[in-house]
Computed example of a mutant assay.
Amino acid sequence: MYRKSNTIIGFLNLFTLLMSIPIIGSGFYMAKNSSTCQNFLQTPLLVLGFLVLIVSLVGFIGACCHVTRALWLYLIIMLILIVVLMIVTVFGFVVTGQGGGAPVPGRVYKEYHLQDYSNWLRNRVKTDTNWDSIKGCILGSKTCGKVVGWTPFDYMRNDMAPLQSGCCKPPTSCVYGQTVIMGQDPDCYKWNNDPSVLCYACDSCKAGVLETIKRDWHKLSVLNVIVLVLLIALYSIGCCAFQNTRRVESTFPFGLNRMGKVRTGWDFW
């Protein structure tokens, strides 16, 4: 059992160490290619990747080299990481549980309303400073350039991403060039066909940003759940390896193995 638990935890930590590399890479990729320049998705991904890297390295050394202190440190860090990851995952599901868009009659795309999202998310786009930064990133990504040449028929048959639906056109209910008896959506008056204006000042554009963040965060939450299950399994095996390492050290206090020879770092016997 001693050999099995230490061998398993050694290989599993080697696997998670290698797995942390694409997680870190994904965080840097999202930071570079985000159309909204928001870092409250990229930052948790980078932190998760580096923590998994450090924990896996400590666990690998502790299991394969029979270093009790390393395994003890590994179990403490692992427990903290599991608790933090649980909190972050639950928080992510809570703040992104609302929204989702409303169907538009006769259209494939959906439209998004700012009031449908949680207060925490709305606060991310509430201040002018934050929104000016986000708007600059949307303009730089040329999100609206893909739909600028659409005909009315294209709007009826084609789907649109949340950013395109919220930022590149006025709400579908808007009426222009006619006498409107009832009041229209305030976003209708913020729309301008100038490519540098469009509907970037609209609440629908902010809602499109939040919907994009929500969808990305759900993907991150699924990844968190997978990593969480793996960490719990590693923690359980790590506890066994720690107990076995302490048992061997108490049995062979002078660093000798069962054959009476000096025990090396890779000697499981």
Score class of each variant (00 low, 15 high):
F40L: 13
V225I: 15
V147W: 11
L81K: 02
L41C: 04
V148H: 10
V222I: 14
F153I: 03
T151K: 12
E211L: 15
I237D: 02
N119R: 05
G136A: 12
P170H: 07
V52M: 12
C144S: 08
G260R: 09
T264C: 11
D194L: 11
L198V: 01
P105A: 01
G208D: 14
A63R: 09
F268N: 00
K219A: 13
R122Y: 11
T36I: 13
D267C: 00
I23S: 00
T172I: 13
D203E: 13
L228P: 00
G149T: 15
M1A: 10
L230D: 08
L121M: 15
L46E: 06
L139I: 11
C64A: 10
N130V: 06
T143W: 00
I9K: 02
I237V: 10
H218W: 15
G106V: 10
C144F: 05
V67F: 11
I8T: 15
F153W: 09
G97Q: 06
C37T: 11
R107N: 04
F153K: 04
G101E: 10
L17H: 06
C167I: 04
V47D: 01
S118A: 14
P171K: 10
L17G: 13
L121H: 09
W217H: 14
S5G: 01
N192E: 05
D203R: 13
